[in-house]
């Protein structure tokens, strides 16, 4: 299978648009949930090696809060929503009104964890329903799982399927950040959409760029 090699710049633009539409909806959902302004960056679509993938969120050992789900249906793949600990803490504190909550505590409050899970549910749901509306494809997300751990350990879960076919991965990467929180324009969260290699044909067909 060399589907991955046959991707042109037109294809990359289409994938970028998917990231754009998906993340815009998710950012809007997040924004209304928190009553804060959430902005997003122009999506990046990259073909990277597994090891370069680790660098997209600060290195394999960086501890992050990760939401992961599988997409099934007309197009299959993995989706991650990755937040640095401090940013996840800020979101959840605001959601549950508990200023002491932190994902760096070894014993996590159940309320905080389920709030994070729900947040992941809502965001990935709005990302994927936008994607489904845009492409006309039927896609079904699994219930998202939550893990607070090293980025490498979390993201490699989504590389397993791909690694049977390739040593590289196409990643649709959209970053979001909380406006006005700091001036350094630091990236605060990532949506990573990793379509399974066999799914690209379906995505491109659905969008008329087969």
């Amino acid at each position: 299978m060399s589907e991955i090699q046959k991707i042109t710049s037109l294809h990359l633009d289409v994938l970028k648009e998917i990231g754009n539409i998906g993340a815009a909806h998710a950012a809007t959902a997040l924004s209304s949930l928190l009553s804060r302004k959430i902005d997003m960056r122009v999506p990046k679509v990259e073909m990277v090696s597994f090891n370069d993938m680790m660098e997209l969120a600060g290195g394999a050992e960086t501890v992050v809060v990760g939401i992961y789900l599988r997409i099934e249906g007309d197009s299959e793949g993995s989706m991650f929503f990755i937040l640095p600990i401090e940013q996840a803490d800020r979101f959840i504190r605001r959601l549950i009104g508990d200023d002491l909550f932190s994902f760096s505590n070894t014993k996590l409050s159940e309320l905080g964890v389920s709030a994070m899970q729900e947040l992941g549910n809502i965001l990935s749901g709005s990302y994927l329903s936008a994607l489904s509306d845009f492409t006309g494809m039927k896609i079904f997300p699994t219930v998202p799982g939550l893990s607070v751990d090293m980025f490498g350990a979390i993201i490699s879960t989504g590389l397993i399927e791909i690694s049977e076919v390739s040593d590289q991965v196409i990643v649709i990467n959209t970053s979001i950040f909380e406006e006005g929180f700091d001036n350094r324009n630091e990236v605060h969260g990532h949506f990573f959409l990793l379509p399974d290699p066999d799914s690209f044909t379906n995505i491109f067909k659905a969008l008329g760029v087969g």
């Binding site: 090891n51 680790m54 394999a60 350990a153 490699s156 040593d167």
Partner: peptide, 23 residues
Amino acid sequence: VGIAQLDVVKMPDTIRTSGLGSC
């Protein structure tokens, strides 16, 4: 050593890999 890579070392060097999940 990165994901899906290998290497060999000799004392006094050490060898390390980061972020093993299901790997």
